[in-house]
Simulated assay, not measured.
Amino acid sequence: MPSRRPSRKRPWGAQHQPLDMDRALGGVRHESAADGEWTVRRLRGGDKVYVCPACRQDILPGTPHVVAWQRDAVGGEAAGLEDRRHWHSSCWERRGRLR
């Protein structure tokens, strides 16, 4: 008799877990700010060194951070995607409060 894989379904009667939208969307969200419409994606860490445009400090490999690009850039979102920048998460959040 073949072995059965355990069910991944929620056990009957167990509490419902709310949907984690950030995880469901792959970490992508849209934000509106005084300087336009942005697509923002959270990354768990990359394999390169990036320079944060806010603090001009390095984002080292493996450091969780965000990458953002303007959705309403001249030339459309594709042009914004070409100009995307990697930000420290705290710098991105602070940027949103300053504008």
Rank of each mutant, 00 (worst) to 15 (best):
H16Q: 13
R44I: 07
P11N: 14
R10C: 07
T63G: 04
R44D: 13
C52T: 10
L43I: 05
R29L: 04
R41E: 07
Q70Y: 01
D22W: 07
R23I: 02
Q57H: 15
H16E: 14
K9H: 14
V67R: 04
C52G: 13
E37G: 02
D58W: 08
L43G: 04
P61I: 07
P61T: 11
G26T: 05
I59F: 06
E31K: 03
H30T: 08
W69S: 04
H30K: 00
D35L: 02
W69N: 02
A73G: 02
Q15D: 14
K9V: 10
G26K: 03
H16R: 13
R23D: 10
A14Y: 12
L60T: 14
V74T: 05
K9G: 15
D35I: 00
L25M: 11
R41A: 07
T39Q: 08
I59Q: 10
S7W: 11
R29F: 04
Q17R: 15
R8Y: 06
L19Y: 08
T39S: 09
L60S: 09
P18E: 13
A54R: 09
R23S: 06
W12S: 15
A34G: 01
T39F: 03
L43F: 03
D35M: 01
D47G: 12
D22F: 06
G13E: 09
R29Y: 03
H65M: 08
R56L: 14
G26P: 05
V66E: 01
Q15H: 09
D35V: 03
D20Y: 00
A14I: 08
G27N: 02
L60F: 10
W38H: 01
R42E: 09
A68W: 00
A54D: 07
G62C: 05
I59T: 12
P64K: 02
W38F: 01
A54F: 01
T63H: 10
R44E: 12
A34F: 02
R29W: 01
